[in-house]
Design a protein around this nucleic acid. Sequence first.
DNA 1: CTCCTATTTCGATGTTTTTCTAAATATCAA
DNA 2: TTGATATTTAGAAAAACATCGAAATAGGAG
Lengths: 97, 97
Amino acid sequence: MSTVFKALADPTRRKVLELLREKPMTAGELAEHVVITKATLSSHFAVLKAASLVSTVKEGTTITYHLRLSVLEEAMLDFTRLFGWTLSSSETSEVTE
Amino acid sequence: MSTVFKALADPTRRKVLELLREKPMTAGELAEHVVITKATLSSHFAVLKAASLVSTVKEGTTITYHLRLSVLEEAMLDFTRLFGWTLSSSETSEVTE
DNA sequence: CTCCTATTTCGATGTTTTTCTAAATATCAA
DNA sequence: TTGATATTTAGAAAAACATCGAAATAGGAG
């Protein structure tokens, strides 16, 4: 849980997660949306990966990042429960993966 | 939002918030529940205060910490909304403050 | 094989965080 | 005022983080 919150503590990383919410994207595509070097972004990816918030798929020369929505949701669920809150997904339909 | 998540990234700080959820407590009382020095705990308080997650009330020689539930809830609300989730409070009754 | 593109790793540097002990501050009681 | 208690601040050292430019790795094209 600490690793998830630590990952969420950085604006760039939150932005990456938001972008990935729309669709999986390559490191290069993601880089076009932020104002830091690719090297720096790459280390942010490592933090997100350490928190299991994203997964990667290598396709030839590119690496595509996928959001692990369930991991994020689980962490939020666990935490919000501690405070007597209820978290519900509006769009629960893709169990296809 | 970053300050809130940063505050939540530490287990000791999350524990403090959970304890305060039950009732306001003094620094000394909180210290009885964790295994670090009071000085260290005090700096954790500073982080929580910087995130506006707690407020303090001085009563003579003691300082009582109060959870600012609304601030925490607001941050969670803002964040979870980004992912299409809905957060609802089961116990919403204290608007007294 | 050589070159180009995509991405990560390396090495350096500066900042922030965590934690401790010791000292300072403030309040209350005698 | 002196002493005891509650809490924070100061100062220091170690670890973690953020960031960059440059170099390394790996695939595909020619």
